[in-house]
Structure formats: C-alpha cells, structure tokens
Simulated assay, not measured.
Amino acid sequence: MNAQPTDASFDTRQRLIEAAILTFAEKGFDGAGIREIAKRANANSALVTYHFAGKEGLYLEALRYIFNRKACQVAQLALRPRVEGPGAREDALQGVKEHIRAFMEDLMACNRLIDPVEEAAMALMAREMQAPRPASSALLMEHIRPHVEHLMHCLRVLRPDLSTDELLNMGLSIQGQLLYFRNSLGISRLIRGNPDYPEDLSVLTQHFTDFSLRGLGIPEAFPQPRN
C-alpha cells in the first residue's frame, strides 16, 4: 500500500515546482541545475529525484502546473457544442470574437499581480513555444490543441474557400499578435511612457478583434450604414 503524502512533503514538492518555474524561465532547461533549483526551494536536491524522477520529470511537472494553475477560458470555449446549418456562420463570427477576448484575458490575467512565479510561468511558456522540447511536445499539444481546434473551426466556417494551410496561417496571425503584445508588454510601456498600459483591456481587445476580422475579410463584421 502506497503511503499518502504528508503536508510537509506536499509543501516541499510545491516549493520545488515553483523554484523550477523561476529557474527554467531564467536559464532554460539546459542552463538550470537541480542543485540550484533545490537551493532556491530550500530543499535537498535528492528530493528532485524522489518526487519527479529527475530534472526532465520536474520540467514536465512545472509545465503541467502552469497549465493547471488556473482555468483557461479558451479551452472552455472549445467545449461548447458547435452550431450547424443556417446559424453556423453567425456563431463562428461570435466564436472568433470570444476567442480573442478569452485569449487576451488569459494572457493578461496576472498583469496587475505582483507574482514572480506567474511572470516566470509566462516566460517559460514563451521559451517552450519557441523551441518545444521533444519530451514535452505531447503535453504541450494536449493543452494547446483545444485552442487551435476552436479557432480553426470558426475560421473554416467563415472562410470555406481557404485551404487548411491558409487557415492555419490565419490562425497563427491572430494568435501571434496577441502573444507578441503580451511578451513585449514591457517595451510597449516604455515606448508609451505609461507603466499602467493598458488600463482598459477591452479597448485593446476590440482593436485586435477588428484588425483580425478585417484581415480575414469578413464583411458582415463591419456593416455599412444604409443611405
């Protein structure tokens, strides 16, 4: 019979995960050392092997912890039933708008919190997106696939004339501008001379939505006034 983890054991495991997120975000997988992570967590380095079977296991658990730390609004959107028939196009248009809003809110959820682990989690995910490790690719795709499938379904309904590759490029363009903004928020604030930018996230979200829908060529998204 396996022993149940004690509160002290859980606390140590939690500290190791958070220390790993901070260290992997700063130095990447290759640059981070087990002893360094353990020291940061105020724990014995042997506990990395005990809890996670080594550095690779700790890295995967750090990514899993980031994904599961808070609810993902985009993933929740993907669970909604898809509308077929006459209402499908209107539903898809609304789906793109909600996708952009949810993705922006997910990306900016920690913006006003003084939480170094949260900021490090964003940095670590940016590293992983740029160069996915073979060992973590399956985990990454498991959590990202709902984002991709939800947006691709909406785009396929709105632009049935485009090939799968063209739709993927459209989707990457939409998500890419949001990710670039979040990852470049510091320099955006410097350029604007505004450390609180954006004060009103809804205004920025509307800009990204309009920009994306115009790029997609969706005329009904911008109805013209009748003469």
Score class of each variant (00 low, 15 high):
218 I>S: 11
36 E>D: 02
1 M>R: 14
9 S>Y: 00
27 K>F: 14
20 A>I: 05
74 V>W: 02
124 L>G: 12
9 S>T: 03
181 F>Y: 14
20 A>S: 15
4 Q>G: 05
80 R>S: 12
122 M>R: 10
68 N>M: 01
32 A>C: 02
111 N>E: 14
215 G>V: 06
114 I>S: 12
51 H>N: 05
93 L>A: 08
84 E>H: 00
179 L>T: 09
53 A>V: 08
120 A>Y: 10
96 V>K: 02
49 T>G: 13
221 A>C: 06
126 A>N: 08
89 R>Q: 02
49 T>Q: 10
202 S>R: 13
202 S>E: 13
194 N>Y: 07
198 P>D: 06
147 H>F: 15
131 A>E: 13
182 R>Q: 01
178 L>G: 03
52 F>V: 11
64 R>V: 05
42 N>P: 01
168 L>F: 10
55 K>N: 09
29 F>L: 09
122 M>I: 11
226 R>C: 04
191 I>K: 05
135 A>R: 01
163 S>P: 09
105 E>G: 02
151 L>S: 06
203 V>L: 13
201 L>K: 11
43 A>T: 00
211 F>Y: 05
149 E>Y: 05
85 G>D: 00
208 F>A: 08
184 S>D: 14
70 K>M: 04
143 H>E: 09
220 E>I: 05
150 H>E: 04
56 E>V: 15
158 L>T: 01
27 K>D: 15
189 R>W: 10
119 E>P: 00
106 D>E: 15
129 M>G: 14
153 H>Y: 03
64 R>E: 08
115 D>V: 07
186 G>Y: 07
193 G>P: 06
132 P>W: 00
205 T>M: 14
105 E>D: 09
44 N>Y: 12
125 M>F: 12
218 I>T: 13
203 V>Q: 11
175 Q>C: 08
183 N>Q: 15
30 D>V: 05
69 R>A: 13
82 R>P: 00
196 D>H: 11
98 E>M: 06
170 M>C: 15
36 E>C: 01
6 T>V: 03
12 T>I: 03
74 V>F: 02
183 N>I: 08
66 I>F: 03
61 E>I: 05
